[in-house]
Design a binder for these strands. Structure first.
Lengths: 192, 192
DNA sequence: GACCGAACTCTAGCACCGCTAGCCAAACTG
DNA sequence: CAGTTTGGCTAGCGGTGCTAGAGTTCGGTC
């Protein structure tokens, strides 16, 4: 059994290498630079090997996205934990979210923008993304009022998502970014 | 001079045909289906003709986007005109925006999502988009409070954009769409 | 230790993409 | 009618994601 075990171990390691290579390449040069040929060269195997691990390029990107969810969840959790009060918590988590999107645009794209196979808000949502969403929901809890917390959180989250994506695509004035964030936070932290 | 005039007329007509074909193809089958070869076949010319009109595929998409801006502006203006009060105007324009994005996803993508060469919030923004933005700003004017109207409008617009894009990519529960819209409108139409 | 069979990887290639060089024919000019 | 210019076309380049089938390596068995 040890031989088979070793093989499975090597195989798993190679799979990790593929995901890591895709992630690094995407973060360094954008997703356009992530081709199956470059990926294969990076892991020092031939192209078809990729397809013995993943159904296709989309599946690789989805795997990167799932991994990225963990990072996002961690950063949101840290921001929430560091806050001194409910309103500051919302402001902090919003800033953390925006900074994540700006610091790692390729990762953010993989999670939220690129059309991948992984579906959200359904049964098979990545558990790490659920965690990230829960951080947001926890933070917003005091301000949901009569609205359903999940729906309320989705709306706030959409606001954040819109801000970061529109700005990154050059559709918003960059210098007003913080003010926009402040407005969004302000509007979602009013009681009554 | 009439010969040259006819030529220019024919040339302009062909350019319109290219944009129309690209738009129809994109709306019918998505932007992935819009290839230069299919586009050339559609207008019954060879591929290189496209490049005598546009710098490349991106420029064609940008042209479609600019055209689409006019439609969006029209629909937003109509929604604003039909409203019976300031708050209803915001709700109406938000619904109109969301319906535009849902009814013509390819067009919406060309305008806001796909990385094109046209830049916004700068000098050479398409005039039609400025008009669409102005409709939003006018509608939101009564609710901006102390915030700068343009920045306030950008924030609300980002909320709308986030809602429609996340939902279309399967990141939000579709059945909660109207409730999310209502929450967004509610939060941006509170006075004081 | 030699061999066999299975597991696995690689080479080569498909159909497609955006884009362009260079030819050729048609149209205008004198 | 000859010459030139204009403009569309054919053909092809280098790239993409993906795959069929050949070839090699390696573990298990006699």
């Amino acid at each position: 059994m040890s031989i088979q075990a070793r093989r499975e171990r090597e195989r798993a390691e190679r799979e990790r290498a593929i995901i890591a290579a895709a992630r690094e390449l995407a973060e360094a040069e954008g997703w356009d630079a992530v081709t199956t040929r470059r990926l294969a060269a990076e892991i020092e195997y031939s192209q078809p090997v990729l397809y013995s691990h993943f159904k296709g390029k989309g599946a690789i990107m989805a795997a990167v996205a799932v991994e990225g969810c963990a990072d996002l969840a961690d950063e949101l959790a840290a921001a929430r934990a560091a806050a001194t009060g409910p309103r500051q918590a919302v402001a902090g988590i919003a800033t953390a979210y925006a900074e994540f999107a700006e610091r790692r645009p390729a990762l953010y794209d993989a999670i939220f923008n690129l059309p991948t196979d992984l579906s959200f808000a359904t049964q098979e949502t990545p558990v790490e993304l659920v965690r990230a969403f829960a951080e947001l929901a926890q933070t917003l809890h005091p301000f949901a009022g009569d609205d359903n917390l999940e729906t309320f959180t989705e709306t706030f989250w959409s606001g954040l998502h819109g801000l970061v994506t529109l700005m990154r695509n050059g559709r918003l004035r960059r210098e007003e970014h913080e003010r926009r964030l402040a407005i969004l936070v302000d509007r979602f932290t009013r009681l009554g």
